[in-house]
Computed example of a mutant assay.
Amino acid sequence: MKLLTAVAIAALSLPFGTTAFAQSSPSGLTHAEVIAQLKQAQAEGLVPTPNGDYPPSAATIAHNREIYAIQHGTDGASGVRTRGMPASHPVAASD
């Protein structure tokens, strides 16, 4: 009798458990939007960052902007604004 009750409870709970994991709406961002955001963060110098430097320091941002400018053949990423820091703000890169 206990086995029959356990099987009945398990059988009735299966349909309810599977709906808990169903995704009702998409995540909100498309793959292309995520790639565009990543490219923007690279241009702003926010990524990559070392493990111990989060949020990235001004020196890391300046270094990343310099590398981005070299890799992409731009005359400098100084026109890109970083949140909280104006584009004309001088940042000394330290190595």
Results as ranks from 00 to 15, higher is better:
Gln40Val: 01
Ala93Thr: 15
Gly28Asp: 10
Tyr54Thr: 12
Ser27Arg: 08
Gly28Lys: 14
Ile35Tyr: 04
Val80Glu: 05
Val80Ile: 05
Gly52Leu: 11
His31Val: 03
Pro48Thr: 02
Ile9Thr: 15
Pro55Tyr: 06
Ile70His: 10
Ile70Lys: 13
Gly84Trp: 00
Leu29Glu: 10
Gly73Leu: 08
Leu4Glu: 05
Gln23Met: 01
Asn51Trp: 09
Gln42Ser: 05
Leu3Phe: 02
Ile70Gln: 14
Pro15Val: 06
Gly76Val: 05
Asn64Asp: 08
Ala32Ile: 04
Pro26Trp: 04
Val47Arg: 10
Asn51Ile: 12
Ile35Val: 09
Ala8Trp: 13
His31Trp: 02
Ile9Glu: 14
Ala20Thr: 05
Lys2Trp: 05
Thr60Tyr: 03
Glu66Phe: 15
Thr18Leu: 15
Tyr68Asn: 06
Met85Arg: 08
Arg65Phe: 11
Val80Tyr: 02
Gln71Glu: 07
Ala93Cys: 11
Thr19Cys: 09
Pro55Met: 03
Leu29Arg: 04
Gly76Tyr: 09
Ala6Met: 13
Ile35Pro: 03
Leu14Arg: 07
Val91Leu: 15
Gln42Ile: 01
Asp75Glu: 10
Pro86Asn: 06
Gly52Cys: 11
Ala87Gly: 13
Glu33His: 03
Arg65Ala: 09
Val34Phe: 07
Pro50His: 14
Lys2Leu: 08
Asp53Phe: 05
Glu33Ser: 04
Ala92Val: 13
Gly79Asp: 12
Thr49Met: 12
Pro56Trp: 01
Asp95Ile: 01
Ala62His: 04
Ala93Val: 15
Lys39Cys: 00
Thr60Asn: 00
Met85Ser: 09
Ala6Glu: 09
Ala43Leu: 13
His89Ile: 06
Leu46Glu: 07
Phe21Cys: 11
Leu12Ile: 02
Gln40Leu: 09
Asn64Thr: 06
Ser78Asp: 13
Glu33Met: 01
Ala69Tyr: 15
Val91Asp: 14
Pro86Leu: 02
Val80Asn: 05
Val47Met: 06
Val47Asp: 07
Glu44Arg: 05
Glu44Leu: 02
Ala69Gln: 12
Arg81Cys: 03
Ser94Val: 11
Ser25Cys: 08
Val47Asn: 06
Ser94Trp: 05
Gly28Val: 08
Leu29Ala: 01
Thr74Trp: 03
Ala36Thr: 00
Arg81Thr: 11
Arg81Val: 08
Val7Asp: 11
Thr19Phe: 12
Leu14Ser: 06
Pro48Tyr: 09
Ser25Thr: 08
Thr30Pro: 10
Leu38Ile: 15
Leu29Gln: 07
Val80Asp: 03
Ala36Gln: 02
His63Ser: 10
Ala41Gln: 06
Gln23Ser: 01
Lys39Asp: 10
Ile35Phe: 00
Leu12Ala: 03
Ile9Cys: 12
Ile61Arg: 06
Thr82Asn: 06
Ile67Pro: 08
Tyr68Ile: 00
Ala58Ile: 00
Leu3Gly: 01
Ala22Ser: 15
Gly17Lys: 04
Pro90Glu: 10
Phe16Pro: 09
Pro48Phe: 00
Asp95Phe: 09
Gly28Pro: 08
Gly45Thr: 13
Gln37Arg: 13
Met85Ile: 15
